[in-house]
């Protein structure tokens, strides 16, 4: 066990965890931030996507010891009132079915738009293809990203 001081959603948080513990489980088990989801544990589905210094990152394979002073943002910290342009677009297009993968989809999309407010179809496609949606809401994800991009 070791103690880590993490910068999460604009706050300093102290956690005791084994250094190998993936950030996903630190968030879910230690910090009660369960919006970041467990899907595969091998960075193949994207359900666990968070931002590490604004870069979309799979938290299920990221050891807590690798974070250092980097800033972590989770779905809970993306906005205070679920009013980030991507979240608003997701609601407007009523994207979710089961909803389980959507926090990861939103975090991936938000990081993309932060980097490039007007991404091409090809950029959207290559970025979003790392996030699985088993319900098959891909058409709506595309529509929501376009809506969010237009609002930026």
């Amino acid at each position: 066990m070791a103690t880590f001081n993490l910068h999460i959603n604009g706050k300093q948080q102290q956690v005791d965890a084994d250094p190998s513990t993936p950030v996903l489980w630190v968030l879910r088990d230690n910090l009660n931030l369960v919006g970041t989801k467990f899907g595969c544990g091998i960075a193949m589905c994207g359900a666990c996507t968070i931002h590490v210094d604004d870069v979309a990152t799979r938290s299920c394979v990221l050891p807590v010891s690798a974070i250092g002073s980097k800033k972590i943002t989770t779905i809970e910290g993306l906005s205070e009132k679920a009013d980030h342009p991507v979240q608003k677009a997701w609601m407007e297009k009523d994207v979710p079915q089961c909803g389980y993968c959507q926090a990861g989809q939103i975090m991936t999309a938000a990081a993309l738009l932060k980097k490039n407010a007007n991404p091409s179809d090809e950029e959207i496609e290559s970025t979003m293809s790392g996030n699985l949606c088993r319900c098959g809401t891909y058409q709506r994800i595309k529509a929501a990203i376009k809506t969010a991009a237009a609002s930026l």
């Binding site: 369960v34 919006g35 989801k37 467990f38 809970e76 609601m91 979710p96 909803g99 959507q102």
Partner: peptide, 18 residues
């Protein structure tokens, strides 16, 4: 629209795993 839409997009606990 989905009555749980806002909760889903803001990552609130809804699922069994949560």
């Amino acid at each position: 629209k989905n009555v749980d839409g806002q909760k889903i997009v803001s990552g609130q606990p809804l699922f069994g795993l949560d």
